[in-house]
Write a protein that binds this DNA or RNA. Structure first.
Lengths: 151, 151
DNA sequence: AGAAATTCATTGCAAATGCAACGACATTGA
DNA sequence: TCAATGTCGTTGCATTTGCAATGAATTTCT
């Protein structure tokens, strides 16, 4: 018959595989809404939204929060700065750290982008119905689990 | 006060963001188990497992199933072939397609890798408890939704 | 205090990636 | 039938990425 002599394995339910595929689909779909129109890349969007919605994040903060390599964050931040969307200032209380902040231009761009993200999220919520809160709990659990591993 | 004049937005619950971060954590954690020891990369693992557990997949099939760029699949497949883990044969019924198959060496390697994936999956299942099936349903819904978009 | 170890952000460089272009094959439709 | 269109896998090339190394600042330990 067809098939090899391999252990049973249900690839369709394998979580790392499912999350990876779905995350790529969701991110690419969102990117279509801003990439061409606003000329920013996926890492730039991720950094920008973190600067807007986390308090004074450093490069390292964003690395941890978004699971984005610090060199990637650093380069995305440099591009956002070059575009006049954020500023980078050394943190006076710890001069190793940078405090990233939005410029008025950055605030204005985020103000356009966020509603797009909101409506995408709403759309996803609609397809999930009452399962969304369960999903959020499941994601919390898995995230905590992975945090423990990294300690 | 701190904060900018931005629309309300709960970044912590924003699904594309959550999935992306979690997928990266899960994949990297798994990769630690095989990357060094078996010398294969993440894309190689993904292609290999698809060749093993989907029936005669072509490059294009894998592209769709895994949301992996076809050039990425093509190059991963070339490397797996060079390592003697898979074969690539033109499909006689449609000579544009390749049929990817495991070699005995590939079967043997997958036979070692899959149990590692299994036990990781079991571990994740344990932290999710009875929520795992809900999670799978939620993932199904979102996947279907994204498939509709791409049509 | 001050030497050693740690933490941040940046950068150089080799490797990986994405995208468009290409050749081979298949399908459509006049 | 055969020209036009579409699909599949590969590849060239510019860009992006990851990783290790670096320099600056801080913390830890003796």
């Amino acid at each position: 018959m067809s098939g090899y002599d391999l252990p049973d394995f249900d690839l369709e339910k394998y979580l790392p595989y499912r999350f990876t595929a779905l995350a790529a689909r969701l991110s690419d779909e969102m990117a279509k809404s801003y990439k061409y129109k606003y000329g920013i890349s996926i890492p730039e969007w991720r950094v920008l939204v973190n600067v807007g919605y986390a308090k004074d994040p450093s490069i390292r903060d964003i690395e941890r929060r978004v699971s984005l390599e610090k060199s990637k964050v650093s380069r995305a931040a440099a591009k956002l700065e070059a575009k006049g969307l954020i500023t980078k200032d050394v943190d006076p209380s710890d001069r190793r750290l940078l405090k990233l902040n939005l410029t008025p231009k950055g605030v204005s761009l985020l103000g356009e982008l966020v509603p797009i993200a909101q409506s995408f999220q709403t759309e996803l919520g609609a397809t999930l119905g009452d399962k969304e809160s369960m999903l959020q709990v499941a994601l919390d659990r898995l995230t905590d689990k992975m945090n423990d591993k990294t300690l």
